[in-house]
Computed example of a mutant assay.
Amino acid sequence: MSDHDARGANEQEQILAGGNMGGAVRVGVSVRRCAGAWSPTIQRLLRHLRQHGLYWVPEPLGRDQDGRDSVSYLAGEVPQYPLPDWIWSEDILADAARRLAQLHAASAEFDTTDASWQIPVHEPVEVICHNDFAPYNMVFVDGRLTGVIDWDTASPGPRVWDLAYLAYRLVPLTDPANGDGLDSNVSQRARRLRLLCDAYSRDHGHEVGPAAVLPATVQRLHDLAHFTQARADGGQDELRSHVDLYRRDTAWISVHTRALNDNAG
């Protein structure tokens, strides 16, 4: 038995909320989940990111005695919906954008030879996208962003693919009827979108503005609605309400694209 397995052998498993598609458990100082064909690639990606100074991503720990994928546990608060009011701080918005920029800068050099991904690759490939860079996958200590979790759906894609989803969740770019969003008007959201884009672009060296983020967000939500519809049709009927939500949010962005662009400055 390895040191890794020995440390967790006598520790109770704790089911964690969220966990992407679910199934994540905490065992002591580690998090375990069922491994897939993509797991060795994700372990290698996390190692690469940490070697490039991104110590806010989990440490890869290989597989445990049961063959499960294992990474280090990042201590702190992971907000779930309904999100707490403090999550809408502009400091958190800017810090999240900077972290995403750091990820993209470090991952651009990742060797994808023989890589396997759970989520399809999106063109043009520029970086490795987290694909779910959102508040419910962020770890906070005393209201400060200290880590990002749930990397198993990472895959190559364009920078704007990740930035668009972060904008959707944290600006937010949602229909006012969506209770997961922030009670704010179009002008306020345009200003937050500009702040997000500016914070990302300053740290990355690649300028990505609202004019690129907005159509990418629409495409992401179209894809998400299609993916969720397929899961609902496959027996997960409770997801049908999510499909309607994504489509309403898509329509809201489409209607307000010009105002979001014009007011972003």
Rank of each mutant, 00 (worst) to 15 (best):
M1N: 12
M1H: 11
S2G: 14
H4G: 10
R7F: 14
G8A: 11
N10P: 03
E11P: 05
Q12W: 13
I15P: 05
M21P: 02
A24W: 06
G28E: 00
V29Q: 11
S30K: 03
A37H: 09
L45C: 10
H48F: 00
R50D: 06
Q51N: 15
Q51L: 15
G53P: 06
G62M: 08
Q65C: 13
D66A: 14
G67Q: 08
D69F: 10
D69R: 10
D69M: 10
S70N: 01
V71N: 05
S72Q: 09
E77W: 08
E77S: 13
E77Y: 10
V78I: 11
I87W: 04
S89D: 07
E90D: 15
I92C: 04
I92S: 01
A94H: 10
L100N: 02
A101N: 09
Q102F: 04
A105M: 14
S107E: 07
A108Q: 13
F110Q: 00
T112W: 03
D114R: 11
A115Q: 03
V121E: 10
V127H: 07
C129I: 11
H130C: 05
D132F: 04
D132I: 01
F133E: 04
F140Y: 09
L145I: 01
T146N: 03
D150E: 09
W151V: 08
W151L: 04
T153C: 10
V160A: 11
W161C: 12
A164V: 02
A167E: 00
A167Q: 06
A167L: 03
Y168T: 04
R169E: 05
P172C: 05
T174K: 13
A177P: 05
N178L: 08
N178F: 07
G181K: 01
L182F: 03
D183V: 07
D183T: 11
V186P: 07
S187A: 15
S187H: 12
Q188M: 13
A190N: 01
R191K: 15
L193M: 05
R194A: 14
L195Q: 07
L195K: 07
L196I: 08
S201K: 00
S201T: 05
R202P: 02
H206A: 09
H206T: 06
E207T: 15
V208R: 02
L214G: 08
L214A: 05
L214H: 06
T217I: 01
T217H: 11
T217R: 09
Q219P: 03
R220V: 03
L221G: 02
H222T: 15
H222V: 15
L224I: 13
H226W: 13
F227Y: 08
T228A: 12
A230V: 09
R231D: 01
D233C: 12
L239R: 01
R240L: 14
H242T: 15
V243P: 06
V243S: 06
R247K: 09
R248C: 07
T250D: 12
S254F: 09
S254D: 09
V255Q: 12
T257Q: 11
T257W: 00
T257E: 11
